[in-house]
Design a protein around this nucleic acid. Structure first.
Lengths: 190, 190
DNA sequence: TATCTAATTAGATTATAATCTAATTAGATA
DNA sequence: TATCTAATTAGATTATAATCTAATTAGATA
């Protein structure tokens, strides 16, 4: 997940009124006037806060006649909540400082004449170095379709499905709804 | 956990610089100058952010000679993170500063031999305690007609209209279209 | 189409907070 | 004790955001 997304989530829920709205919606959907009444605030204020909660997808709405009911998206809330725990990466604990020379040598060992990989190393450490090497052609902050990722990986290695899965598992990439993004560098293993 | 504590936690981590500090400290303790250098900010700025992270106990420090090293308290971070998931459960009662003994005494002072109130206290704090006492006979999640509420209040106090109005004004209850409901506990004053 | 209800937007006010430079403090060392 | 290093505090500047009233918009209904 993008750093900014994590920050924005916490900025949004770091407000007393919005936490109270989340708390209210836990026991079921409510319309705007009801929320305003329960919290002792005016309708425009509630609109303002609901907009922010909708922006991060923690609240969604359904209209019934003139009235719009607001619902809590609990699974989204849980996923966003959990993201801060991953920041910095758990795999980061396996401190391995490998020099550029060593990396180059390992990459060369697994590369054929055409610059492609024949197989992935079994050793985790070496495998991460290869994965990182492949990643260098991708852009930070850009969103990729699964198909794009597959095609890109294939320019390096035949079994794109394995590599793509490894990218996500090692926290190099983040996948949401079939869309892939590079993780910020501070989430990478290594 | 108290509502304010949850809000304050998210307010604190809802900042890019502080998330980056947390991310850095995940791979081990660092001193202030090192953090400032890695983030491209000045020492006083880092002091400011570390203070906030220390205030919520997510960071602690150990001195070594002239240098202070800052550590991440990961278990605390996880516990605070999860609190928002629980919010809205009835576990928000801790915000009451007045002990049960004090409350009992105040209630006794305003009660006559028959267990009814002669008058309402002028002091807001005491009045809220009496109102809360009356409320205990009502059910959470149940809807009441105005008539029912009036009759119920009269078993405690003659001037039901005043009490009913106070209930709504103090956010103990919520009124929609002549129907009354108890508010969730975390909306209550005190 | 005219009118009603609920929600949203615009714009103002006010409060909060991120960052910096300059000054000060806490603690170690010679 | 004098001096050094790293951290903190004070105070200013600037940006962000919570809330309100008044105006507008979206959609339903007669």
């Amino acid at each position: 997940m993008q750093l900014d997304k994590i920050v924005n989530f916490h900025k949004t829920v770091g407000d007393k009124t919005r936490i109270r709205i989340i708390s209210l919606l836990r026991s079921g959907p409510l319309h705007g006037q009801a929320i305003a009444g329960k919290l002792g605030l005016k309708a425009p204020t509630i609109s303002h806060h609901l907009k922010k909660l909708k922006d991060i997808d923690v609240v969604y709405q359904r209209r019934d006649k003139n009235t719009i009911y607001y619902y809590l998206n609990e699974s989204k809330l849980e996923r966003l909540t959990h993201a801060i725990i991953e920041v910095g990466g758990n795999a980061m604990n396996e401190q391995y400082a490998v020099s550029q020379e060593e990396k180059a040598k390992i990459i060369q060992n697994f590369t054929d004449q055409t610059g492609r990989f024949k197989r992935l190393p079994a050793q985790r450490k070496k495998k991460l170095i290869l994965l990182e090497h492949i990643l260098r052609g991708l852009e930070h902050g850009k969103s990729y379709e699964e198909k794009e990722i597959n095609e890109y990986i294939q320019t390096y290695y035949e079994d794109y499905a394995t590599v793509r899965r490894e990218f996500v598992m090692a926290h190099f990439m983040y996948r949401d709804n079939g869309i892939y993004e590079l993780n910020p560098v501070e989430m990478w293993p290594v």
